[in-house]
């Protein structure tokens, strides 16, 4: 279980997170909603050690992730799909996957599983990532994260700007990961996507956690999204 315990985070001198506490449980999809600039991306980056956490801590089981240098965080099984994909655009598809496989995972077997999940990537292994279509790039971004055999998967607006068919595919993968016991944390702006996937929903507003509610509560009263985070 991933536990975020009262963390603050800053960009320069501007405080982006104020005492946020949240946990992500194995086998569930936790959605994070909030307006642009609410601190959703900062929260995921804090977990990855990419922004410093001067107060509070982040733990995964017995390991205090917030004490580790950033490059050691993924070794504990945290897969990250950054906002905007952030592929290594000048590297090939195969090389992007190889980067994911380096840290963890089980080499050929893991790679095979990822390519079975995204057969389109197998056809384009030697193509530069930057030349893929938007949907294929997102598959690669997710595939690269799955190469770490994560027990926690962080997805930052993975369906932003994608066609409906692609959105469905990415959502299916999120569900499959949940079924395999992965703790999925999904930053998502669109209410219908959240309603389709979430087990619990957390609302962020200007760096503060407003509320965490079960998804059923949001399905019954979708207006809560507007109430808590001004979205939806």
């Amino acid at each position: 279980m991933l536990r975020i315990e009262g963390i603050d985070a800053y960009h320069g001198r501007a405080q982006a997170l104020h005492g946020v506490s949240l946990e992500a449980r194995p086998g569930e999809i936790l959605c994070i909603m909030g307006r642009n600039g609410a601190g959703k991306t900062t929260l995921l980056k804090a977990v990855m050690g990419l922004v410093a956490v001067p107060a509070g801590r982040i733990r995964l089981g017995e390991v205090t992730l917030s004490d580790l240098p950033a490059h050691e965080v993924p070794r504990h099984g945290i897969g990250y799909v950054p906002q905007g994909r952030r592929l290594f655009a000048e590297l090939t598809v195969a090389e992007n996957l190889a980067i994911g496989l380096m840290t963890r995972g089980h080499g050929a077997a893991t790679r095979e599983r990822v390519l079975t999940l995204f057969p389109r990537l197998r056809e384009r292994l030697d193509q530069r990532a930057g030349t893929l279509s938007g949907g294929e790039q997102q598959m690669l971004a997710v595939g690269r994260a799955l190469c770490l055999e994560p027990s926690v998967l962080l997805l930052d607006e993975p369906t932003e700007g994608l066609q409906p068919s692609m959105i469905g595919l990415i959502q299916d993968v999120a569900r499959q990961m949940r079924a395999q016991g992965v703790a999925v944390v999904l930053v998502e702006q669109r209410l219908e996507a959240v309603l389709a996937l979430a087990d619990r929903v957390a609302f962020l507003e200007t760096g503060r956690l407003r509320s965490v509610i079960p998804a059923e509560a949001l399905r019954e009263r979708p207006d809560l999204a507007a109430t808590y985070a001004g979205v939806g």
Partner: peptide
């Protein structure tokens, strides 16, 4: 080589490289 792959990934995006376990320092 593997070392070269790590160098090229770091060159392209050092933050994302770290998020995939590359010890950028």
């Amino acid at each position: 080589s593997r070392a070269g792959l790590v160098m090229r990934a770091t060159q392209f995006d050092r933050e994302t490289a770290q998020a995939f376990g590359i010890p950028v320092a």
